[in-house]
Amino acid sequence: MTDKYGPWGIVAGGSDGVGAAFAEAMAARGINLVLVARRVPLLESAADVIRRRYGVQVRTVPLDLATDDAPVELADATADLEIGLLVYNAGSDDSTADFLDREPADHLRLVRRNCVSALETVHHFGAPMALRGRGGVILVTSGAAWAGGATRATYGATKAFGLVLAESLWAEWRAHGVDVLALVLGRTDTPSLHRLLGDEDQPLGGLADPVEAAEEALTHLGDGPTWISGSADPAGASPVGALSRRDAVLAMNPR
């Protein structure tokens, strides 16, 4: 794993949930880590746990990836490192509302974090991977990317951007030895989902395990372009792919 994807990996959104699961799984494989997240205490706590458990080097970079300067700050903070694996997982939305009930600035923050910063970050770290002829990129996206959904318009649109971006880069970079994977998650047991549903203290049934999702993605990183976590046919078509676009949207919006 370190020969192909080391010696350093970045996990954007690496302080909890799926990102923390990726960080632990990568550290268990011997990859040194750069963890990126907004909340400093949670970020430092996650880094300390990984250092104690796995003995790898961990660098923390406190950043809000929805800001204009975040990709440049991340590039500067890692300029002395050889990054062989990038996991861009910083794309959740902790609230849900009809499109007009949210301010344009809220929508634009999602676009900045999930589209603009993702693109700039992948471009910066992907270029040296392609030159070296090895490396990997995982863009964590969502089942919300399959079709439009009420109350999730901008979130779903940004996740569709990530899905198509990853698939396109897989087509371009596989000849350069760089593996790219779009990891499509369904409802996953993360703090972000619990905040969205307003039930932080109550267990939810039927949710995917973030540890299993991260392990699955790393195991199948070379099986791109797309991996649908938890699916009976994870490398297959969209679950609404056989439907017309209208019927797919209606299937995503039962109300």
Rank of each mutant, 00 (worst) to 15 (best):
R113D: 04
V116K: 14
S117N: 12
S117V: 14
A118N: 13
L119N: 14
L119Q: 15
E120S: 15
E120L: 15
E120G: 12
E120Q: 15
T121W: 08
T121E: 10
V122R: 08
H123L: 14
H124V: 06
H124N: 10
F125P: 00
F125C: 02
A127G: 12
M129G: 05
M129W: 06
A130E: 12
L131P: 09
L131N: 13
R132H: 13
G133D: 00
G135H: 08
G136N: 04
G136P: 04
V137D: 08
I138Y: 06
L139K: 04
V140F: 10
T141L: 04
T141Q: 00
A144Q: 12
A145I: 03
A145H: 08
W146H: 11
W146Y: 13
W146R: 05
A147V: 13
G149V: 07
A150C: 09
A150H: 07
T151S: 12
R152V: 01
R152I: 00
R152F: 00
Y155D: 03
G156L: 05
A157N: 02
A157W: 00
A160C: 04
G162K: 01
L163A: 08
L163I: 04
L163W: 08
L163T: 08
V164A: 13
V164H: 14
A166V: 10
A166G: 09
E167R: 10
E167I: 01
S168E: 09
S168V: 08
S168H: 08
L169S: 01
W170Y: 14
A171W: 11
E172M: 07
E172K: 08
W173M: 09
W173L: 15
R174G: 05
R174D: 00
A175Y: 11
A175C: 11
A175N: 10
H176K: 14
H176Y: 13
G177E: 06
V178R: 05
D179I: 03
D179W: 07
L181D: 04
A182D: 04
L185S: 06
L185K: 07
G186L: 09
G186T: 01
R187P: 13
D189N: 12
T190I: 01
T190M: 04
P191R: 03
P191A: 07
S192C: 06
H194C: 00
R195D: 01
R195Y: 13
L197N: 12
L197A: 10
G198R: 08
E200S: 11
E200V: 05
E200W: 13
E200Q: 13
E200L: 13
